[in-house]
Amino acid sequence: MKTARAVGIGGYGAYVPRYRVPTATISAAWRPHGATKPAVAEKSVPGADEDVVTMAIEAGRTALGRIPELDPRTIGAVWVGSESKPYAVKPSATVVAEALGITPATVAADFEFACKAGSEAMQTAVAFVGSGMTEAALAIGMDTAQSRPGDALEYTAGCGGAAHLFVPADQALAVVEGSVSYVTDTPDFFRREGAAYPEHGSRFTGEPSYFEHTLAASRRLLAELGAQAGDFDHAVFHQPVPKFVVRASEELGFTAEQIRHGLVAPRMGNAYSGSSLLGLAAVLDQARPGERIFFCSYGSGAGSDAFAFHVTERIDERRQGARVADYLDRRREITDYGHYLRLRSKIRRD
């Protein structure tokens, strides 16, 4: 897919909470002999006063701070993609838009598509700016991922995400070359209204879901662009566990060096809707003018959004504020499972 006018990312910002719970802390509570092959060493945990709204505000502030010449009131759309909204009914996006000084003349809504909600917001932001409906649109993917105590998900369900502000290409630090979406009805993962924790559907995780959609969307975009994996300097994928990213990228022909900068899951777990957008932010922290970035998200239910970006000269002047690595380095370890339960509101004082 291509837009009527060229579009790109004008500013970006990331957020990862300060707290980390090591896999060993969780396995000590549930597996007397420890986790045999933990997928990640530790995962990020939100503070007691954090949720998707507060995290989205911080990522959005960094994104706007990187393009100070842009008046926030010219941003015509704010979308927050998440599967852990603080309210079941009441938009997160209006709080975020209000805090960032974007209200009232703006479109605002929350997106839900499991882990693809953030990249769905990116597709829509690209369309809004690309059609000329608005001069800037803010797409955020952010999650405080839920997991049932003792469930396999509890070892990897992390927290974090990123905000990407889309603007016309002549103001962009990375220009969108093209994008595709690929969706089917696949029952791999779901959470019913009112349920506290999500469920995996039978054995649909993996082959018919993540790999099918990630590979299909990626191959379609490469075909549309007439490009190959080797034409890109960086590649970012949705990161439920690092080994999924390694396998998908290898099947597409990407090398370990190409996925290195965007692979954040080993240090923070799976940030769900925030995962691929955060990986993209980590790549933008490192990318040089002229480089090309390949991006493909995945969300259960299921679908993938693939994008290709071309980095411009503006990248070097748009890196003010905290980078992804700074957030990952800022870590306070939680070694007590009870403290972790309290921070995740799995136990409450009422």
């Binding site: 503070g47 007691a48 006063d49 954090e50 949720d51 709204v53 507060t54 505000i57 911080e58 603080p86 309210y87 805090a99 409450r348 009422d350």
Partner: peptide
């Protein structure tokens, strides 16, 4: 910007 108060599990933030 952070959560300052939660008005119970069914109340506003």
């Amino acid at each position: 910007t952070r959560r300052i108060q939660e008005k119970g599990p069914h109340g506003y933030l």
